[in-house]
Design a protein around this nucleic acid. Structure first.
Length: 964
RNA sequence: GCGAGCGUGGCGGAACGGCAGACGCGCCGGGUUUAGGUCCCGGUGCCCUUCGGGGUGUGGGGGUUCGAAUCCCCCCGCUCGCACCA
């Protein structure tokens, strides 16, 4: 990349729009906005309602940026792209009469903050506050029109008090399947007490009546219904980070997304949130949203709804029992030649016999093939073989599983089950290609119709029965397509959909199975062994059961702790037990509380919430940040959130990287709050827009090392750094690639308005593109030209006259206004800016000819720049003689009369090729068009010796002659 | 492997199925200037041209259409998401 072309300071010209002048007036207007509370946005009620009378009649608009994390490294020019976009949009809408809410807070809890604090040796609160201050300074310098009163941080005690409060609501709620919504847990207990409902579920497997349960059992039953619950689960334990991670924080290679350390599966008691209960609503309500289709598709895939059936297979063994398997293809049951259980499946131990059977049950004369016991051989008895296989699976990391590809491993359990369709006995295997976390953790294997089962069957000499007739030219293994059923008794001849329905009916009649729906979505693992997060408002009594603290005991503040480091151990130390840092704050952990039955000792929960928690609801707190009595005042909430289909924030801008996690978690919390009556809309974010990324070129020298990108020069013989040739790459901005450009650099060289304008001009907001320092001068020159067209560079006097613009200039002005309005509305800032360039180029000519700008052009130009480059726009507006801020001045409106054109130029094509242009009245008829076109000399010549086969006149556009 | 998206000058990018390349950068030429920079004017897809114009051109190939960067099919390349989900 060539040197940044730093403009030479033009000291000789005192009022030239250069970096010095820009910086001066930018600081001035930022101070002005702060002092005059320009962007304080009134609420309809509560402590922030001053001035609402003026806004009451206007439409409201809630514009939101994704919650930023205040990084210790500060901002680079890629970060604010979306913030500038929302600011332009918000400012435009203020000028078109909306009451606009736009602010920004900080997602300041979480692993990065804690790790940064570890690096610097300072307390996370200190470093976090420094980072927030740095980011606030950098963002203030951008001139963003945020309401500063609403910029909450998740680490504020006054904020996380409400995060904890929401957790209490989740803990104190259960999902009523019949009503299809969450309800307060007290209502469930009331129904149990009244005998209106019988407790079922994992905590009450024997279905003991409520009245016969002891108090402790009752609490366990109730806990098993809660939307927040504790469960021993296989979690992603990352010793190097000293924490467990959510599935989403683990890469497909089985390493931590942060730091790339190995991750191991370990059973651990964890908090989970029952997001799976909302799977169907999270899926269905996507239809209400104005979101990019790819994002909706990603959410649908993540939720992964699969309709199918659970089928019960009676086990042929000493104590009987059944295995429930889930399948999406119940139509293939006749081809199920074996079952597979996940290695952790709880039934495995119950069905495994002491010795290998010599033959399947029944007496069809077949024998058990020698390959079934698996790699351990027939000399190893079934229980031992299972144990060894489990050890083998447990020892493998995700990475190893990945490396070994799709090769199937497994072991025969020694047990058999009956296929309810055929009545025959089929062997039961254990294999790790079946996942405990999905469906029932058990499958019926149909090798003829499923490639995975085919691979396994081939490996273990299992029979393969096709149940769908493949096309005659099919030469693959398993056939997964549609076709008539074969070898399937009463299903024969039916196509797949019909066969599925018939089989489900058949199973349900016999009580052998039911139609069910399964989801890929798992419950949300909600606890972390970290210091820098929200403490849970939960304590444990001596019975070890969790107790929710009453609302009056909130907030539960993080204790001061010198040693806040997680227990970090070696990368590969999979066996060390995790110890949360908070467990070491003994005085904090052990408390005596009166929770209703006298003062008793309790232990606090020592896990903290994941970073996602705070970002699940910040958009609600922005609405009413100072409210001490409620999460958000319902009047305020309704005012800002209600809107089109499903309601929600009017425009939400952020990166695609949050396509599933943040957006799904936030929707989930919002729906809980909706069910419990705390918010009025079904969805949090009505319209979502994904901004692109600004990346940058990076350069390596001959040794392969990155060199400072800003010092690379372009010469005729190629790219060089200090005289040595370098090669170019393209990637993220970052210290490691040595290609960072900071906003501060650009402010210094050109000013914030130039940075804003360049970022908006360089391409459409949703596209990613490379930063180009050389290109910035173009927009800077534009601003300087606008300035010069209005202000005398030598004297600072305004040279604008109250004279009429010439007709052509006036037409250009009004066309520009119309197009800029339209582009702004559709977030097409790059083309809006191009139109302003054209208008200003015209104005430059006028000034060159007449020595002054007509006021009727200068004022709208300044106003149209208001959203894009607010500082220079304010300054010009003030110099044009206005005393009020430009922020709420009405955006120019086009004069329809000026948009109408008397004559238009249309194209004449011959065989689709443009050959001439003719001027015709704008309302010319097809016949007039054709006549005028034929009269054009060039066209006439082309048509002279040709046969015109067809004429296509399109009034207002063109005429096409087809000749042959 | 499955799903989604994207390929337009030297570069960033414009273009309701209707003049491809708006606007900007860069580059070339001219003016202003002692000079450089700034600033102003003109030119700039590629090839040919008798300077009138002609040919060609939106990753490649085919199709629909009077007309395709745009719609459809196949292929190539790149990016992103998911990845043994039964």
């Amino acid at each position: 990349m060539p040197e940044p072309t730093t403009p030479v300071p033009s000291d000789a010209i005192p009022y030239r729009y250069d970096a010095r002048l820009a910086n001066e007036l930018e600081t001035k207007w930022q101070d002005y906005w702060e002092e005059h509370r320009t962007f304080w946005t009134p609420n309809p009620a509560g402590s922030l309602s001053d001035g609402f009378e003026q806004a009451a009649g206007r439409p409201k608009l809630y514009v939101l940026d994704m919650f930023p994390y205040p990084s210790g490294a500060g901002l680079h020019v890629g970060h604010p792209l979306g913030y500038i976009g929302t600011d332009v949009f918000a400012r435009f809408h203020r000028m078109t009469g909306s009451n606009v809410l736009h602010t920004m807070g900080y997602d300041a809890f979480g692993l990065p903050a804690e790790q940064y604090a570890l690096q610097t040796g300072e307390h996370p609160r200190v470093t976090t506050e420094q980072n927030v201050a740095t980011m606030r300074r950098q963002l203030r310098a951008l001139g963003l029109g945020h309401d500063p009163r609403r910029g909450v941080a998740t680490t504020d005690v006054a904020y996380y008090r409400w995060t904890q409060w929401i957790f209490l609501q989740i803990f104190n709620a259960w999902y009523d399947e019949l009503a299809d919504r969450a309800r307060p847990i007290v209502e469930l207990v009331a129904e149990f007490d009244a005998g209106a409902r019988q407790p079922v579920g994992v905590a009450n497997p024997d279905r003991i009546a409520w009245g016969d349960l002891d108090p402790r059992a009752r609490r366990q039953v109730v806990n098993s219904y809660r939307l927040a619950y504790r469960e021993e689960a296989l979690v992603n334990w990352c010793p190097a980070l000293g924490t467990v991670l959510a599935n989403e924080e683990v890469t497909t290679e089985g390493r931590s997304e942060r730091g790339d350390h190995p991750v191991f599966k370990r059973p651990l008691e964890q908090w989970k949130l029952r997001i799976t209960k909302y799977a169907d609503r999270l899926l269905g309500d996507l239809d209400l949203l104005e979101w990019p289709e790819p994002i909706k598709i990603m959410q649908r895939n993540w939720i992964g709804r699969s309709p199918g059936a659970t089928i019960r297979f009676p086990v042929e063994s000493r104590d009987g029992g059944e295995i429930e398997g889930f399948t999406t293809r119940p139509d293939t049951l006749f081809g199920a030649t074996y079952l597979v259980l996940a290695p952790e499946h709880p039934l495995v131990d119950q069905i495994v016999p002491a010795q290998w059977p010599s033959a399947p049950p029944g007496d069809d004369g077949s024998a058990v093939p020698p390959s079934w016991p698996g790699v351990f051989g027939a000399g190893v008895a079934p229980p031992e073989a299972i144990a060894r296989y489990r050890a083998f699976v447990g020892a493998r990391t995700e990475l190893e599983r990945q490396a070994e590809g799709r090769e199937k491993t497994g072991v025969f359990t020694g047990a058999f089950a009956a296929n309810p369709a055929t009545g025959g006995f089929i062997p039961i295997f254990v294999a790790d290609y079946v996942l405990m976390g999905y469906g029932t953790g058990a499958i019926m294997a149909v090798p003829g119709e499923d490639q995975r089962d085919w691979d396994f069957a081939t490996e273990f000499d299992l029979p393969i029965v096709r149940t769908v007739e493949p096309p005659s030219d099919f030469d693959g293994d398993a056939y997964a397509g549609d076709g008539p059923a074969i070898n399937s008794g009463f299903l024969d001849g039916l196509l797949v959909d019909e066969a599925k329905a018939r089989m489900i009916g058949w199973l349900e009649e016999r009580g052998a199975g039911t139609g069910t729906v399964t989801y890929k979505l798992r419950d949300w693992l909600f606890s972390r062994q970290r210091y820098w997060g929200e403490p849970f408002p939960i304590v444990y009594g001596d019975d070890g059961l969790p107790v929710a603290l009453p609302e009056s005991m909130l907030p539960v503040e993080l204790p001061e702790l010198d040693d806040f480091e997680p227990q970090v151990v070696d990368d590969d130390a999979a066996d060390t037990p995790p110890e949360p840092p908070l467990a070491r704050a003994e005085q904090w952990v052990n408390v005596d509380l009166d929770l209703g039955d006298g003062v008793r000792p309790y232990r606090r929960e020592t896990n903290t919430m994941p970073q996602w928690a705070g970002s699940c609801w910040y958009y609600l707190r922005y609405l009413d940040p100072t409210n001490e009595n409620r999460l958000v005042d319902p009047v305020v909430e309704r005012y800002w959130m209600e809107g089109a289909a499903g309601g929600g924030v009017d425009l939400y801008v952020g990166g695609v990287e949050h396509a599933v996690l943040h957006l799904l978690y936030a929707r989930f919390w919002h729906k809980i709050l909706f069910d419990l009556g705390y918010v009025s809309t079904r969805e949090p974010f009505h319209r979502l827009y994904n901004q692109g990324y600004i990346q940058a070129f990076a350069y390596r020298d001959a040794r392969g090392f990155y060199v400072e990108a800003s010092e690379v020069e372009t010469r005729d013989d190629g790219l060089v750094f200090q005289g040595e040739p370098v090669t170019r790459e393209y990637g993220k901005m970052g210290k490691s690639l040595r290609n960072v450009v900071t906003p501060d650099d650009v402010y210094r060289d050109y000013g914030a308005d130039t940075l804003r304008l360049y970022e908006m001009f360089m391409g459409p907001l949703d596209a990613s593109r490379p930063w180009s320092t050389t290109d910035i001068v173009g927009v800077h020159r534009f601003l300087a030209r606008v300035w010069r067209n209005i202000v005398d560079e030598d004297t600072g006097a305004v040279h604008v006259e109250d004279v009429a613009a010439d007709p052509e200039t006036r037409r250009i002005l009004h066309r520009t206004i119309a197009e800029v309005r339209d582009d702004m509305e559709h977030l097409k800032f790059n083309t809006a800016i191009a139109r302003l360039f054209e208008l200003n180029n015209r104005l430059t000519q006028v000034v060159a000819e007449t020595g002054a700008s007509p006021r009727e052009v200068a004022e709208p130009l300044a106003l149209m720049l208001g959203p894009l480059t607010p500082h220079v726009a304010e300054e010009l507006w003030a110099r044009l003689g206005h005393s009020e801020s430009i922020a709420y001045v009405a955006f120019p409106e086009p004069d329809p009369a000026e948009l109408r054109q008397e004559t238009i130029e249309i194209v004449v094509q011959v065989n689709g090729k443009a050959r001439a242009r003719i001027k015709v009245p704008s309302d010319a008829s097809a016949a007039t068009l054709e006549a005028a076109a034929r009269a054009e000399p060039h066209v006439a010549a082309l048509l002279a010796d040709a046969t015109v086969r067809k004429v296509v006149p399109v009034p207002g556009r063109l005429v096409n002659f087809v000749i042959g």
